[in-house]
Amino acid sequence: MQDMNLTGLFIDLMGRLGLNYEFLATGYEAQIWRDGFITTLYLVAVTIPVSLIVGLIFAACLTSGRLWLSAPVRGFVELTRNTPTLVQLMFSFLVLNTVVSNMLGGAQNNPLSPFFWVVAVVGLHVAALHAEAIRGGIEAVPSSMIEAARGMGFSQFEILRYVQIPLAFRASLPAIVNGLISLVKSTTVGNAIAVSEITYASIMVWTQRDNVVELMIVLLAFFSLINFVVARVGSWVERRLAIPGYGL
C-alpha cells in the first residue's frame, strides 16, 4: 500500500538520522499515538468555545452591578486564578466526580468522563481569565456613551449586548488570544487523569520504546503548530473587527 510505503520510507529516513520511529510500523502503539493527536485536537476544539461562552457570561455577571450575580463569580474567578489547574483537575475528578457517582448510585451510572472533567476544569479556568479581560473592556466604555444609549431606551442588557460587549471584545482580543494559547497547552493536564491525549499517548509509547527525544520533537512541533494557527486566527479576527478611525 502507498501509505505503508510512505511510513516505511519515513522510518528508514529517520533511522539514518539516528531517530527511532519504528513503532509507527506496529499496529497497536501507532494507533494509540494517532488517537492521542485526535483527542488533543478534539479537546482544544471543545474547550475553546466553552471558555469563550462562559468567559462572556462571567464578565456580564461581574459587571452587572448585582451582588448575587457578581459575588459568586468573583469568588470563583479568584479561586481558579490563584490555584494550579492540575490541582483543580485532581480535586474535580477525585472529589466532585466521586460525589456525583455516589449520588447516582455507583460509578457505572456516572455519565461524566475524564474527558468531560478536563473540558470543564480547563475551560472554566481560562474562562476566568477571559472574564477579567472582557470586564476591563466593558468598564472602559465611557459612561456618557452608556447614558446616551439609556436615553434612547436601551435596557441594561441591550446596552451590554449591542454596545459594551462589541467594544469590550475588541479591546480584550489580544488578552483573549493569550488565554486561548495557554488553554491549548493546559489540555495536557488531562494525562494526570488518564485522558489519552497526545502527551499521555506519547508517555505510553516511550515507556515501551525508549524514544523520548523522537516523540518530544513531534510533541513540541504539534503544539507549536496549533498555537501558531490560534494566533493567526486571532490576528485575522482582530483585523476584521478593527474600527476605522477608532483607537481599537
Binding site: M152, G153, L167
Partner: peptide, 20 residues
C-alpha cells in the same frame, strides 16, 4: 422609564455615537 425614553429623544454634548 424605558417606554418613556423611547418617545423622548435626547442628544448630548459628546454625540456618543457607537464607534463600532
Amino acid at each position: 422609564r424605558i417606554q418613556l425614553r423611547k418617545r423622548v429623544g435626547i442628544v448630548f454634548q459628546q454625540y456618543n455615537l457607537f464607534p463600532h
